[in-house]
């Protein structure tokens, strides 16, 4: 009786050892790691947006937009979004409003400085102003301490001489195109 019992126990022990050994050999898990790296750069971006009170910009929402004043005159009708704040004997001013939005990331800067300049000399009989700053080909400050991430409206004025073509006035009846460069610099 005792011998039988011992034999049973030996058999059970052997079976248990075999089972344990089998599970150790059949490995069903694996591990791995990904060493993720992201270089978070800082930077700012500038875009032009259409102002509700201004002309509809072409390519609004980008940094290369267009503003078409259409036909402008001292006394005639103007396109939607264009106003004529002044008419004098010497010149008249037509105005539209556009928005600039500068977005920053990764900077501690809370404001930026906006500058502008004409890409080329102004055509005869015309001058350009942004927020009353007469533009030249040299960079000029338009706004300091402007806030990020919001549309900021700016007046764009075209001052047109009333002189006749050839007498100091601008060309009449032909499209005149001018490019203004804007630069936002984080403060």
């Amino acid at each position: 009786m005792l011998k039988t019992y011992i034999s049973i126990m030996r058999g059970a022990a052997l079976a248990a050892m075999l089972l344990c050994g089998g599970s150790a050999l059949a490995q069903t898990t694996a591990t791995g790691v990904i060493n993720g790296v992201l270089i978070n750069k800082n930077g700012i971006s500038l875009q032009f947006d259409t102002d509700p009170a201004g002309v509809t910009l072409g390519a609004a929402g980008t940094n290369a937009a267009t503003a078409n004043f259409g036909a402008v005159s001292a006394f005639g009708p103007l396109a939607a979004g264009v106003t004529r704040p002044s008419v004098t004997a010497a010149n008249f001013t037509v105005r539209t409003i556009f928005d600039v939005q500068v977005i920053q990331g990764g900077l501690t800067s809370t404001t930026y400085t906006l500058t502008a300049n004409l890409a080329a000399a102004a055509p005869t009989g015309l001058s350009y102003k942004v927020d009353a700053v007469t533009l030249t080909t040299a960079s000029q400050t338009i706004q300091t301490n402007a806030g990020y991430n919001t549309d900021i409206a700016h007046n764009l004025d075209l001052v047109v001489s009333t002189a006749a073509p050839g007498a100091g006035g601008p060309a009449v009846g032909a499209p005149i195109t001018t490019t203004i460069n804007f630069t936002a610099t984080a403060n």
Binding site: G43, I44, S45, L46, Q47, F48, L57, T62, N63, A64, A65, T66, A67, N68, F69, F98, V100, V102, A119, Y128, L156, L158, P175, I176, T177, T178, T179, I180, N181, F182, T183, A184
Partner: peptide, 8 residues
Amino acid sequence: SSGQLTIT
């Protein structure tokens, strides 16, 4: 950052 506004 810079941008260009072209006026016609």
